[in-house]
Design a protein around this nucleic acid. Structure first.
Length: 425
RNA sequence: GUGAUCGUAGCUCAGUUGGUUAGAGCGCCUGUCUGUGGCACAGGAGGUCGGGGGUUCAAUUCCCCUCGGUCACCCCA
């Protein structure tokens, strides 16, 4: 906010993850990892930057590569970019290493897009994602979508809707684009001015315009369904059948085209109905049967999705689910003598697997026990002059004021604490 | 990139037609309680009023520029 001399702040669209939120962040990452690995997906980590060519395969005309990429030349003049999304890099990795198929992987980490920030949108944002490469089986589409569904349920979200569409193969996509272009040209004057320029370059993009004049026109546009060939229809039908069998509710949305050029056949989006903001897509993905080939590999089908962690947590806030986990501190060591007992006892407890903490700077008894209380610890160990003399420790249970404080021998403290915490082995 | 809106203590905000030492609540620290926590009371620390320039005898208050936050378009997670 302020910019005083010699002070700095996070760059536009970035933020610090602070202790108040970081435990929740770690927890949601953990949830995703366990849901994904339960379905046979393994973690893959790719670099945060790559040769820019990897990402330009997303589509030269897309906003993501055209104007939102953080690109730079390194000291050896290599043209690089900070990754703007996950799928292209995973496909590059597949081509580079040629693992056996189906290759089922998940990933998570920061992504970068040079955009003006707003609700649910950042320049550095974070995604989970999965990719399943090497199979054209529609049941894999179902597995991928179901995994997204399972994650959303696991963090407690209820108000989400799944939108589903099929783009057909590369050929139908081309045919549909042309006929859509023809249709839109006839109605150019009825379109919102802002959208007219997209008719030639990106007719598909006109479909998801939010402008009402344009929406009135596109409501009459030919649906892509009419252009699907027999195989595409069969594939799409089988996907729907699978979702029905798994009791995953969905809505067919013929205008769901998505902004990345590589999609073929199944495309889908999970939207949060609890989010008031303009960006309510929590998870989006689809099939990309031509991308691997584009990146120099053998023709190989693939499907996956990306899930925005910030948006997922925003949706959790809106539904009041997935709260910040309780602090982990179990024991607070209070030392009102010279602090050496606190120094030694915290180390002893910690090396015995107990979450222990203490106050510093020789604070008063009152101050230390207040810190102990606020830490969320269940137990306070108290050392004063008397305890030092007698080699004992007073134990106070912080969560139940009715219990009497007890005194134990100093050498028994670890086993006593473990017992009181219910950890006794 | 375009548009709207905002910018006063760590946080949430007051601040009178521009007028002398800029306030509150919460939080933090200390004390009432010379060894005992969630309450109460008292005290304390903490602000170049985002930054720069201008108008004026005087600017947190008016004007310009700039930086940043928020929201929307575009697009997407």
């Amino acid at each position: 906010m302020s910019k005083k001399a010699n002070t700095f702040q996070t760059p536009i669209g970035t933020r610090d993850l602070l202790p108040g939120e970081s435990a929740r962040w770690e927890a949601v990452v953990e949830v995703f990892g366990s849901v994904a690995s339960r379905s046979g997906f393994a973690l893959v980590d790719t670099p945060l930057f790559e040769d820019i060519g990897v990402f330009s395969r997303i589509g030269e005309g897309t906003d993501v590569v055209g104007k939102e990429m953080y690109e730079f030349h390194d000291r050896s003049d290599r043209h690089m970019a900070l990754r703007p999304e996950g799928t292209a890099a995973i496909c590059r990795s597949f081509v580079q290493h040629r693992p056996p198929v189906p290759w089922k992987v998940y990933y998570r980490g920061p992504y970068f897009r040079y955009e003006a920030p707003q609700a649910g949108r950042f320049r550095q944002f974070h995604q989970f994602g999965i990719e399943s490469i090497g199979s054209d089986d529609p049941d894999i589409d179902v597995e991928v979508i179901a995994l997204g569904w399972n994650v959303l349920r696991s963090v407690g979200l209820k108000e989400v809707t799944l939108l589903l569409n099929s783009m057909g193969n590369a050929n139908t996509r081309k045919q549909y684009q042309q006929s859509l272009r023809d249709f839109l040209e006839e109605h150019t004057l009825d379109l919102d001015e802002e959208d007219r320029s997209k008719v030639q370059s990106h007719p598909l993009r006109v479909l998801d315009s939010k402008r009402s004049a344009t929406q009135r026109v596109t409501a009459e546009a030919p649906p892509i369904e009419e252009f699907l060939d027999g195989d595409a229809k069969a594939h799409f039908g089988r996907v729907q059948e699978g979702l029905n069998a798994l009791n995953i509710p969905f809505t067919i949305e013929p205008k769901l085209v998505r902004g990345l050029d590589y999609y073929t056949h199944t495309t889908f989006e999970f939207q949060s109905q609890a989010l008031e903001s303009a960006q309510n897509t929590v998870c989006g993905g689809g099939r990309y049967n031509g991308l691997i080939e584009e990146l120099g590999g053998p023709a190989t089908p693939g499907i996956g999705f990306g899930m925005g962690i910030e948006r997922l947590l925003l949706a959790c806030d809106a539904e009041e689910s997935f709260p910040n986990p309780a602090p982990k501190t179990q024991v607070w060591v209070i030392d009102v003598t010279d602090g050496s007992s606190a120094r030694d006892l915290t180390q002893l407890l910690r090396t015995n697997g107990i979450f222990a903490d203490r106050s510093f700077d020789g604070r008063s008894m009152r101050s230390q026990i207040r810190s102990a209380d606020r830490s969320g610890a269940q137990i306070a160990l108290i050392i004063g002059e008397q305890e030092v003399e007698e080699a004992t420790i007073s134990i106070r249970m912080l969560r139940d004021r009715a219990t009497e404080q007890i005194v134990v021998q100093r050498e028994d403290v670890v086993s006593q604490v473990r017992q009181l915490l219910g950890l006794e082995s």
